[in-house]
Design a protein around this nucleic acid. Structure first.
Lengths: 360, 360
DNA sequence: TTGAAAGCGCTAACAG
DNA sequence: CTGTTAGCGCTTTCAA
């Protein structure tokens, strides 16, 4: 019985990769026994078990997951399909998701189908061929996407940071409404009375939800929503600067706080305020949305911002998916809470300097 | 012969998923024949072939890739292991890589092991179990990472946007030196004579390479490298602002151009210049590095910047990997060319307005 | 031109 | 306690 056990077996396909047959041979037991020993099931003498394990170690045996999956009912594999080419929102979600799934021994096939239905279908076909146990779909959030067509409707599908019209689908999204309420209530608690909302294009569902949160928080506090204290523009810094110009030019009453639809708008607004001699937060407080460090920390002063907790979203998606793979049937739209990260742009008392560093 | 073919076979593991056995039964041929028909090999009467294909269609048959891979020498699957938690650099690379591989029917397992050797080993074990045909490693570029230990050294491994000390490894990185030369030569061509370099922490290898490119481009043009016209700081906007303060305070000769280590530094510098009444590019031209749209387009004016062509890097990685899987042995460090994207910050003549929009 | 049968590497039921 | 064996779904000789 030499070291070259695998030569005798003719298993040359994966060279120097020992099979369980090799392990059994080297341990001098049957292949069934080896399996039991390695999987820690069945009744075996401790001695035999050890002998097999030792043999496996020596041969560097690693079971072939594909062969295993042929038996088990699970491939221990899921797919994630993304159409968000930018990846800024997708990535934290993915990270947390992958981490959660890895804990359960599930590997993730990642596919990118940027806005191309043909490529998307191709990817799904491929994934179905790989017998994935589940699928996570991520998208730009602009509009609801068509549901993924899975034959038999037997495979769990979760939409994260995206929605579909299929009422039987499970969708996980941040609670935009609640996030807005959080931001606005923070400003109100700081004594602000004339709060303007500067936000992005109306075609985003998130814009409407955040608007509603903004309006409801105001009226709940008995603050009037003054005409002109709301502005629908782009998601850009420039849009933030333009909004400030509009809101602060002229003789009308000026806002004492800005609640912005994202951090880019907030940053642009902050710059514009500073440039017209207004102090943030003393004269005008600013709250952003996204808590995107690149913007929020680089702004002067650093921005208070609503955090969508994307990692939590990813983690939740992982958990739901695992549950669904285990047989649970989940559906509906689940909105996960946002949180507020307070920095100097809204808090006169907070003078702690936040550091900013990024890699190149 | 009813529609419920799969019930007779007892193949209940993947419910409503037809096997080739089902297809054969429905077509009234043997399972071997069905295989030949579906894979378009062997000699078969056209009629039989059609009959089988029709049956497969009706049953929604999709071959089980895991079962196939048990035979073929390839799993048609690769892994990508990333330790760049930010993802800003990794993502475009990944996208292009995945696209390239998908064209060849190869699916990508994506694993994130942020700076954690234990998690990394776990992931690699898992991937080896899945019998991946190859592995791509991505990392922060700060330092060379230890080589991945693959038993038997038989599986292709490529390091992208990262390097390892193993001389037998293949590493793909952007040509930082050349990129710097590109940026500096552009400034020189614009008539600038006193060019300062503001860059990031020296512990990054990229910093040294870009410094060398900067210095060589200057001396090639016969321009002296003046003391103090170089500054080693952070990768942040604040660092850019501080550098400008240092370089432009006092009575010494001021630079007429800044070559910056990344776009954040460049943006900070641009802001600081504007705030002290200097016009960009008329008084001082600015060139950044990374061509990160979020920074480059939002800056006032938009930044000329060196683009590392990360998508090209990813595409190249895909091609090399496919070649290696096919048996080629590649090694060494390959440096892929950068390119320059000219915008207003360096080009007095260029007044075209670049638009800026991002999603929330 | 088609069918039968022997595996790929592994697990699990059933004997011994 | 251990070995034998029948598959998982598919491919590929080798016969017929």
């Amino acid at each position: 019985m030499t070291d070259k056990t695998n030569i005798e077996t003719g298993a040359e396909r994966y060279p120097e990769r020992a099979t369980i047959r090799d392990v059994a041979a080297r341990a001098g037991v049957s292949i069934g026994t080896a399996s039991k020993a390695l999987n820690d099931n069945g009744r075996l003498k401790q001695e035999t078990r050890d002998k097999v394990i030792a043999a496996a170690q020596e041969l560097g045996f690693r079971p072939n997951a594909m062969a295993q999956s042929l038996h088990r009912t699970k491939s221990m594999t899921v797919g994630i399909l993304t159409t968000d080419s930018v990846g800024r929102f997708t990535f934290p979600i993915f990270e947390a998701l992958e981490e959660r799934l890895a804990e359960h021994g599930i590997a993730v096939f990642m596919c990118n189908a940027t806005e191309d239905p043909a490529r998307e279908k191709q990817h799904i076909d491929q994934l179905l061929g790989k017998r994935i146990d589940g699928l996570v779909v991520t998208a730009r959030r602009m509009d609801r996407r068509p549901a993924i067509a899975v034959p038999g409707k037997t495979m769990p599908v979760i939409y994260v940071f995206s929605q579909t019209d299929d009422p039987d689908a499970l969708c996980l999204v941040p609670d935009d409404y609640g996030g807005a309420v959080l931001g606005v209530e923070h400003l109100i608690a700081g004594g602000r009375k004339r709060i303007a909302h500067i936000t992005g294009p109306e075609r985003f569902e998130a814009v409407t939800l955040r608007q509603n949160g903004f309006a409801d928080a105001l009226s709940k506090a008995g603050l009037p929503q003054i005409g002109g204290f709301y502005r629908n523009g782009q998601w850009s810094e420039q849009s933030g600067r333009e909004a400030v110009a509009e809101l602060f030019d002229g003789e009308q009453t000026h806002p004492d706080a800005l609640f912005c639809g994202n951090d880019q708008i907030a940053r642009g607004a902050t710059d514009a305020l500073r440039e017209r001699g207004l102090r943030v937060p003393q004269d005008v407080a600013v709250v952003g949305f996204d808590n995107w460090d690149v913007m929020a920390l680089a702004a002067r002063p650093p921005l208070t911002s609503v955090d969508m907790n994307l990692r939590a979203l990813g983690r939740a998606a992982g958990e739901r998916l695992i549950a669904m793979i285990a047989g649970e049937r989940l559906k509906g739209v689940e909105r996960l809470p946002c949180s507020l990260v307070v920095r100097q742009s809204s808090d006169p008392g907070n003078s702690k300097k936040t550091t900013e560093e990024n890699q190149s």
